[in-house]
Structure formats: C-alpha cells, structure tokens
C-alpha cells in the first residue's frame, strides 16, 4: 500500500515537472510559428516572405550605400523564408556571407546557403526597400580579398581565401535578378 502511494506520488511529481518544463517549450514553439507567419524575420527566428516595402526597379544600383548598413533581410524564393544577415559592399557590388559551414552543426543550423546554392533567386530588404536578387556563390577570384577585408573591417569577421575555397565560409554575390524572377509581389 505504501509502495503504491509512493509510486503514485512520484508519478504526480514527475508529471508536474514535465508540465512545467513544457510551458516554456510550447511558448518558444509559438514564438517560432509567429515569426514564420510574419513579414520578415525577427532577431532570433526566421520569418516569412518579405511583402512590405517598395520593390526597386530600374538600373542596377550602386551598392556602396550598404557600407553603413548592419544587417539586411534576405528571403529566398524557395523556400520563402527570411532571415537577418550581414552584407558588405566591394567595388559597387554587394555580398553576403555564411560562416560555420565547415561543421556538421553549422550546416544543420544554416540551411539557407545550401538552399541558395540550389536556387539563388532572392528578395532582400534594405532600409524598407526590397530588391530582387540572384545569389551566386563565390569560391575564389579577385574580389575575395576585398570582400574578406571589408568583412573584417565592418564586422570583425575573419575569413581567409582558403576558408572560402574549402567551404567553411560560403560567400555569395547579390547579383542582378534573373530574367525569370517569378513569385515576387510588387
């Protein structure tokens, strides 16, 4: 009888502890869902498609204005999720970067670079204005030195030409939109 009571009490205590532990987990899951449904990312969680903001058209802009921009919102067309990322400018072109790509956890955590390599069509939003772009992965070339220098200057992010060549850091140029950019709402 005492054993049964002890088991019952233990079960109640464990159930209570599990319930208490589940509350913050459920709350966090709701925050993630809320972020995913919103226009653009939050600081911590990926967001939904970038809808608000004028869609820039016309000639290719000079991206030097992003030298003073800390983060931008980047949304791939497939899948249409958005996130905050760094951006640098070099010789009038814009670049984005993803570190930690050399580790298993990094690749698990950072899916957007792999998705971008597969389909580089994207929308970025900078200071409220959206730009249709195509992400093209850069593994080498003359611009790497300048881009990595700018990353170091702007963010203190250290990446070498070797890091980019061997894939531990993925670098993308934000090139002009491809001719068949569909799925972009004006």
């Amino acid at each position: 009888m005492d054993d049964q009571r002890a088991v019952s009490t233990t079960r109640k205590v464990v159930s209570g502890l599990v319930f208490v532990a589940l509350i913050p987990l459920v709350a966090m899951a709701a925050v993630m869902v809320s972020a995913r449904m919103g226009d653009g990312p939050s600081v911590v969680f990926a967001g939904g498609p970038l809808v608000a903001g004028e869609l820039a058209t016309g000639p290719e802009p000079d991206w030097s204005f992003v030298r003073d921009v800390g983060t931008i919102e980047l949304q791939l067309l497939d899948p249409p999720k958005s996130r905050l990322i760094w951006i640098v400018e070099h010789e009038g072109k814009a670049y984005v970067v993803s570190g930690y790509m050399g580790s298993f956890i990094g690749r698990l955590w950072k899916r957007w670079p792999i998705q971008a390599e597969r389909d580089g069509r994207a929308i970025i939003r900078v200071d409220g204005t959206r730009y249709a772009r195509t992400l093209e992965r850069i593994r080498g070339g003359a611009e790497v030195e300048g881009v990595t220098a700018e990353l170091r200057r702007k963010y203190g992010f250290v990446a070498s030409r070797t890091d980019i060549a061997d894939g531990s850091v993925w670098l993308f140029e934000l090139g002009p939109p491809s001719a068949e950019m569909t799925g972009v709402s004006p």
């Binding site: 319930f19 509350i23 911590v44």
Partner: peptide, 26 residues
C-alpha cells in the same frame, strides 16, 4: 495540463507583443 499548454500557445501566437517580449528575453 494540455488545456494550459494550448492556451499558452494561443496567447503567445495571438496576443500582440507577447511573442516579441519572449524573444527579447531569449
């Protein structure tokens, strides 16, 4: 317990500002 968890989920999802507040704390 299940009802409370569902309520927590809905409050965070639907009440303005709650999700942002939690994210700020995180």
């Amino acid at each position: 317990a299940a009802s409370v968890l569902v309520l927590v989920f809905l409050v965070v999802l639907l009440v303005p500002g709650v999700a942002e507040s939690i994210e700020g704390r995180l």
